[in-house]
Design a protein around this nucleic acid. Structure first.
Lengths: 253, 253
DNA sequence: CGTTGAGTTGACTCCTATCAAGAAATGTGG
DNA sequence: CCACATTTCTTGATAGGAGTCAACTCAACG
């Protein structure tokens, strides 16, 4: 039994490495057979280069995608041609949930850098729920989590200043990097000021000004896309009035 | 067979009346047995008065709730004591999806007027997915729809003017009332200017000014909480740059 | 009929978008 | 490898939209 458990855990690790989805099932005590089943339906496509699309608005919905390495941004095209960023997705995070409803994708997803994703055919995933107990519930949880995150962002966009928005954004990235085993205080932004602004409902100039402002206050060290958080406490304090949405934005996938 | 179908449809209508959830399953061609199963788990509580809570932040998550009549607002409490409205829920709409993730509710839900809700114990609903084919998928769709709606609101809050926000809000209400068989051009707001403002990220004074402004432009007729839309086209035109989020906010349930 | 809460309206201020110009980095082709 | 083009970022000046503060009106209710 203990030996079996070890095998199972190793398999889990492998599966987690290949596809963040399996991680969902960790708290369930999946046995190795379950992992194998999950593993069997996951498709490993070759990495996308910067700018490559995972899917585009209007594409038929077939699969969810789990980011393995790199970053995906999701966005919609506005009638006037400009694009609106609706999300940034780091390793371990899932993209494509909005496609389930109408059986087609309602936003586009493109790589911000060289990025590897796992493709999980949704139909097969739905079938697996009958043979893997608890999987269904984990999927519901995953989607509930997505709703929570979006609610948090809504609140942030509705009633926060530019400063609070950028602070929340940086803290969210920090926590998410930390959860994946990267440094929570030092990381590279894979998105432009423009994209950050679009996501946070700010002009790119405002984002730029805030970065320099945070640097002047010794909260950050900014070198173009490289960010080092010098004073995490101050960053948190900026959000003292916004803890509600902060919690929502930060909880692990 | 045709006779059976009639029975089934009647049952469906009854079920729909009792609980909007069954409506989810309409496109699936549920048979009457399925409806009975769904019906059996639904609890009908007595109506809430204005101000009564369906659930509160931190409550253990047990059930989803479907609004039968009336209006529910969901909101979170900010650290400084003020509340932030995160949603208004009309008849047929589902409340409580954000509770699945952590097994407890992350927001509070209270009645804005005398309101009847159906309680659907989530555990039992999850069990039913094994005996009602397609139910699982409908639940995924429901949650996906919720994500889509929130994304739409995010975009609206991120990059729209106060005028556009209120126009989108009114059009969203209009469509949702229409879908439930009410007039799309004349209705009563069950929420205060304050609550509308909180939801849209605006000061209550701004909301008030916009109502008078819309009235001056002969777009609306406003008498306190009673709204009559005089010029639907103009209202749409205000959102010509925001059609993306408009679509997302409007689609049925 | 006074009290209370909601809504309206005005005056003022401030935050952030916009416009504009320049600097830095990145990429390209000769 | 260098000159040029292009994109991204930074910084400044300006203007406008919406928040805030405050006073007033109106409706509801005991």
């Amino acid at each position: 039994m203990p030996k079996n458990k070890v095998v199972s855990l190793n398999k889990l690790k492998v599966a987690c490495k290949n596809c963040g989805l399996a991680k969902l099932c960790l708290p369930l005590g999946l046995d190795s057979g379950d992992i194998d089943q999950l593993d069997a339906i996951v498709q490993r496509n070759r990495p996308l280069h910067r700018g490559g699309h995972v899917f585009q608005t209007g594409d038929k919905f077939r699969s969810l995608y789990v980011v393995k390495t790199g970053t995906i941004k999701t966005y919609t095209q506005c009638p006037n041609g400009s694009e609106q960023v609706v999300g940034f997705h780091l390793p371990g995070e899932v993209v494509g949930l909005d496609g389930i409803e109408c059986d087609k994708h309602l936003c586009s997803a493109k790589a911000l850098e060289t990025t590897a994703v796992c493709e999980v055919p949704f139909g097969r995933l739905e079938e697996l729920t009958s043979s893997i107990p608890g999987l269904q519930h984990q999927l519901f949880r995953l989607m509930s989590r997505e709703i929570t995150k979006e609610t948090g962002l809504m609140v942030l966009l509705g009633k926060s200043t530019a400063e609070e928005r950028l602070a929340a954004f940086l803290l969210s990235l920090s926590v998410r990097f930390h959860n994946r085993g990267f440094s929570p205080v030092e990381f590279n932004l894979s998105m432009s000021r423009q994209e950050i602004g679009s996501y946070l409902g700010l002009a790119l100039e405002t984002v730029s000004r805030l970065f320099t402002h945070f640097q002047e206050e010794s909260i950050l060290l900014v070198d173009r896309k490289h960010i080092k958080i010098l004073d995490m406490d101050q960053l948190y304090n900026l959000l003292s009035n916004q803890t509600t949405c902060l919690d929502r934005l930060q909880a692990p996938n």
